[in-house]
């Protein structure tokens, strides 16, 4: 069987918050189940392969966001991959550039996004920085908590084409409107950056199931469960 191909797009531009961790987590969770995985880190100038099952975008500063979006559009590989049925998971600034438009700089210049999610991002009245806790509903109706850290200066509003990924219990999320992230077909965007998948293995396995069309057998996640309990208790305590 061919290895599952995971592509981390432009780590040097969009990888400011440990976002490579998401790629590490996905590849390891396949490996631990005896499923071979191939992780490819693509930098600007290298072609983005169009034959991956899973693509990842991370966070970055304004200039990096624009450079990355321009290069992704010019390359075209990501679009071809998504047309062939791949999954894209984008966090933070990577989430913003997937939308119809976003703003950068002190003058709030509006920049066209990749058009992969029906969302628009504008500068927020104040920056959202801190632990975030959301409730994620799977397609089958079951729920899990997602724990993470958000750090973004934009508010994102969803159009008709996208639905929220999760409901916010604590934190800002999309626009202080109780929603977090966006899902549209096989594209998922989310604000909690960095290794959100490290703290939320159930989301990681959901992405892997979507990308491979295979059920993911349970792993020993006891150390992760202890971390999750600690973070969830911490953020709930902080709210009181």
């Amino acid at each position: 069987m061919k290895p599952v191909k995971i592509v981390l797009i432009y780590q040097s531009l969009l990888g400011i918050y440990g976002d490579r961790g998401n790629a590490t987590v996905l590849a390891k969770r396949l490996e631990w189940r005896g499923i071979s995985a191939e992780l490819e880190v693509v930098e600007p100038g290298d072609p983005i392969p169009s034959d991956a099952q899973l693509y990842l975008l991370g966070g970055g500063e304004d200039m990096a966001q624009i450079s990355a979006a321009n290069a992704i559009t010019a390359d075209g590989g990501l679009y071809r991959g998504l047309e062939s049925g791949a999954v894209l998971f984008a966090v933070c600034a990577g989430y913003q550039i997937c939308g119809n438009s976003y703003t950068v700089g002190d003058n709030d210049t509006v920049v066209a996004g990749l058009g992969l999610l029906d969302v628009d991002t504008r500068r927020a009245p104040e920056r959202a920085v801190g632990e975030i806790l959301t409730r994620w509903e799977r397609p089958d109706g079951s729920q899990s908590l997602i724990t993470g850290f958000e750090n973004h200066g934009g508010h994102t509003t969803l159009g008709r084409g996208a639905r929220p990924l999760a409901a916010v219990e604590i934190g800002v999320g999309n626009a202080n409107d109780g929603t977090e992230g966006a899902v549209q077909g096989r594209v998922i965007g989310s604000y909690p950056h960095g290794p959100i998948l490290a703290r939320n293995p159930q989301l990681a396995d959901h992405l892997l199931t979507m990308a491979t069309d295979r059920d993911m057998s349970p792993l020993d996640d006891s150390a992760i469960d202890r971390l999750r309990s600690e973070r969830i208790a911490h953020v709930r305590r902080g709210r009181k």
């Binding site: 990888g15 918050y17 440990g18 490579r20 801190g130 850290f149 750090n151 960095g194 290794p195 490290a198």
Partner: peptide, 9 residues
């Protein structure tokens, strides 16, 4: 730094 995402870098 309150955010430990850097552990993954």
């Amino acid at each position: 730094g309150r955010d430990v995402s850097w552990l993954w870098d």
